[in-house]
Design a protein around this nucleic acid. Structure first.
Lengths: 243, 243
DNA sequence: GGTATTGGCTATGGATCCATTCACTGCGAC
DNA sequence: GTCGCAGTGAATGGATCCATAGCCAATACC
């Protein structure tokens, strides 16, 4: 959720620098699903829409590319990053190692209020059937468990991978159905209980299992990654232009 | 060692795009130690030196900021990233989790020739007393152990953190002295042996210990991080401009 | 009828020029 | 003597204009 670690910009409110404004706008559009993976991003069009010149758009595309949200190909164009299943699994494997670390670094610094809020959010999640609301709450829950982590490098990485997998989490949550959510609720309860006990080992264990199980579930739904390009250029093949 | 995942550029040879040329030049200067942490980077100066306009330099600084090598502050300037001890420890904690993953993903795909080369490099390292040569060989050794990793996301992260800690590895290797290197040699032998046996569990274990021990050693040398700013601006306080 | 080549068009990359903003310095007042 | 303020300067951010590379289509040739 941190906008960008590279340039100093107001964490909240209107960014003074146009590049950040554009980057924030595009990032929100991508994360909300408005811009789907593989969608072409035209510099001129975005510039006109945001009332800026093409230059801030170019810098914004670089910033987002650094966050893994866009792909820029020289003399060709920019697209919203698209992952194949192998890449998505790779990201989940990274998250499997990284997020437990973030949690371990966070737990000693979590306040009682934050832990209480975790339980509130968890209850709200269990009462939710709407996919978008579930996604938002799930994000708030997990990121809140990491919020005590003082190491900015770790939280930056966690945020980054969280964002790049946003679209696939949405697609997954949509097809998982109510039955699949039961296990998620159980995992959340166990993680929060471990946090309440300040049991780092258990918390890491359950979180690792949580992410790992999601990865394995995801591997059983290759159809999430085989969707044809809708409005994208034919060169928008993948996140890595293999030149 | 992959130049940049963002824009397509020739993997080797002269980059067709100026931004990549500038980024490659600055990256090399930073990694070689020519540009030390905290050093101010002037857009105009670099542009003149590289025979380009300021625009590619700006984009290059964004690219390098994404890799964690530079820090750009709005309306202020750019500096080579500097870490305090806490940040450096944070990066080592990340590496402690991430590089074993890269190794685990790599081992099944390593060829016999590559394993043989590992032993050759390890022997060369043991015969080395020169710090810069040690650094180069150590880098080749470890990155070669990860070279079988097919997940580009993982290797990209590993390269990134390897680069950002380059300067501190150099400083550490310099003060470690011959006695400190003995343990490193032992760890290398154990890791390579586990790789030869295709024993992922052991390989991960020894690698984790290798990185962890380095982190703990580093924590005992805070003087590596207290060096005064030499030719840098007074605002070059840390890698994160706390605005 | 199929294929290769060439021409035009579009979008990005780069250069120059102008506005803005931050920092340093000098002066003045308390 | 020290603190505060204003002015100046330099470096960055942004806008416009031009060059270039890639894509697509039309045409000519096989």
């Amino acid at each position: 959720m941190s906008p960008s670690p590279t340039t100093g910009s107001g964490p909240s409110g209107a960014a003074a620098v146009a590049s950040q404004r554009v980057a924030d706008h595009l990032r929100a559009a991508i994360l909300s699903g408005e811009l789907r993976p593989g969608a072409r991003i035209m510099q001129e069009q975005v510039a006109a829409q945001l009332g800026a010149s093409r230059l801030p758009v170019r810098e914004a595309l670089r910033i987002l590319a650094a966050e893994g949200l866009t792909v820029v190909k020289s003399n060709s164009g920019a697209w919203v990053s698209r992952m194949d299943m192998a890449e998505c699994e790779g990201v989940y494997k990274i998250r499997e190692r990284l997020e437990p670390l973030a949690l371990a670094e966070s737990i000693p610094h979590l306040t009682a209020e934050q832990v209480a809020e975790l339980e509130t959010i968890a209850r709200q999640i269990e009462l939710t059937t709407d996919v978008d609301r579930f996604l938002a709450l799930d994000g708030r829950l997990h990121l809140l468990t990491y919020s005590g982590c003082r190491v900015t490098q770790i939280t930056a990485m966690v945020d980054r991978f969280w964002n790049t997998t946003q679209h696939y989490r949405r697609a997954f949550a949509r097809l998982a159905g109510d039955s699949g959510w039961e296990l998620i609720h159980a995992e959340h309860r166990l993680i929060i209980d471990a946090i309440k006990r300040a049991d780092i080992v258990d918390a890491e264990r359950f979180l690792t299992g949580h992410i790992r199980r999601t990865r394995l579930e995801l591997a059983q739904h290759p159809e999430l990654f085989t969707e044809e390009d809708h409005d994208s250029d034919h060169t928008a093949d993948a996140a890595g232009p293999a030149d």
